[in-house]
Simulated scan of single mutants.
Amino acid sequence: MPPSGALEGPSWMDEWGNNPATVEALATAMAVLAVIFAWLNLRESKANRHAAQAEIAARMRPWVGVFDFAIKGLDGDDGPTLCLLLRNFGPIPAQHARLSVTLEPRDRPHDEPPNPISWQEQNRKVLMPLEDGNYPISLKRFPQMQDWIAAGRDVVVRGSFEYSRADAEFGSSFEATLWLSRDRAPGQPPSTNWRNTAAT
């Protein structure tokens, strides 16, 4: 005789595995888990595909940056010349390329109106992979440059280089400083420093 209060026959645990409602609930749960797993896999594969496509696009494009920067001829009759060396270190040509440069004093009093030098390349060109783009920019026709040199004022140079590939537009920028306030021997160029600041 079973103890008082105990159920006769199979317990509810014995019937749990044979209950049709339980089997249906388990099947539904397994189907939901399968759908979630498939969705997670699909999302991960899409993310991996997008990451791979972005990496390929980043590799298969032109990349142009400044590789050298100097100023020459401060004491010569031909006037100062800004010398820039740009290089395309990407695997394909940089098309429709054009350089733009601005110069202005590093420190400008509040009461001094801005009077920057602006220079832009007239024609667009193509910069081939690993090709050097030498840019000698004469500053002789800009009287403010002569004034800055005579006053020993440090000058900031900012430049941008626009280029494209098919229907995609790219660009890079750089910044440099001409330390005209520092002592230098006659005929020697001033100290400079420069860096590439952005690439898009």
Rank of each mutant, 00 (worst) to 15 (best):
L130C: 13
P186C: 07
A199D: 05
I149G: 04
M60C: 12
F170K: 04
K72Q: 12
I71F: 05
V157Y: 00
Q188P: 03
P80W: 02
A25R: 10
P91M: 03
E55H: 12
S173L: 05
R182A: 07
V156C: 03
P129T: 13
R43D: 11
G76P: 02
T200N: 15
I36V: 04
S118I: 09
C83P: 11
L82Q: 01
L99F: 08
K72H: 11
S138P: 08
V156G: 02
F69N: 05
P10C: 03
A58K: 08
I36Y: 04
L178G: 02
R165G: 11
R108A: 05
P143I: 01
E55A: 13
G76M: 07
V66K: 08
W63L: 14
A51M: 03
G65P: 07
R108G: 05
E15D: 12
H96K: 13
S11D: 10
I56C: 14
L33N: 15
T102L: 09
A21Q: 12
P109N: 03
V101W: 01
V157P: 00
P186N: 10
V157G: 00
V101Q: 01
W39M: 13
R61E: 08
S172Q: 07
M13K: 15
L33A: 15
E104W: 07
R106N: 05
G152A: 01
S118Q: 08
R184W: 04
W39S: 13
G187M: 09
K125L: 15
G9E: 06
G171C: 03
D183I: 14
R158M: 03
W179A: 06
G5M: 12
G133Q: 06
L42N: 13
P114R: 13
V156P: 00
T197Q: 01
N193M: 06
E44S: 14
T81F: 04
R141G: 06
H110Y: 13
A151K: 07
N41Y: 15
N134V: 14
D154P: 02
I137P: 02
A199F: 08
L130G: 11
L82T: 02
T22N: 14
W194E: 03
Q188T: 11
A34L: 08
D75E: 03
L26S: 10
R195Y: 08
